[in-house]
Amino acid sequence: MLYRLFTHTKDFSNFAEKFYSLKLMTTKNLHSMPKLEIQGVSFNVDGDGFLQQPDLWSEEVAILFARHDGTGELNEKHWAVINFIRNHWKETDMAPMVRKICEHTGLRLREIYELFPMGPARGACKIAGLPKPDGCV
């Protein structure tokens, strides 16, 4: 996974730049939003720690979020879930049903909860940069 970090370093600095310029532009609206600071990088999140501007997501964000919420280092199985959730959301504006996550990644239901101790919503969807789903989650 380390190679991802290196290959995306440039993207990451772009991301940081984009992030900060956006923050400056909208300081007035965002000043009361909660901030999540992980390893020196700060994110605008909602009260539950979901990314406020899902477009600012990158793989580095996922890595930082996963470290922060106790999911730990992300392996290939994690990435399969995260990428599927991310793509599904981009296409349909919805988090996928957990059945679809299993179907598309070939993982068993039980594995999903083991991979993401916070569950598919507060764990996987949050790491994938989605807004918080409605309902009892």
Binding site: M97, V98, L109, P120, A121, P133, G135, C136, V137
Partner: peptide
């Protein structure tokens, strides 16, 4: 059902 069951927690 609570919708979170079919969506995320079908167990």
């Amino acid at each position: 059902l609570n919708p979170r069951e079919p969506k995320f927690f079908p167990l």
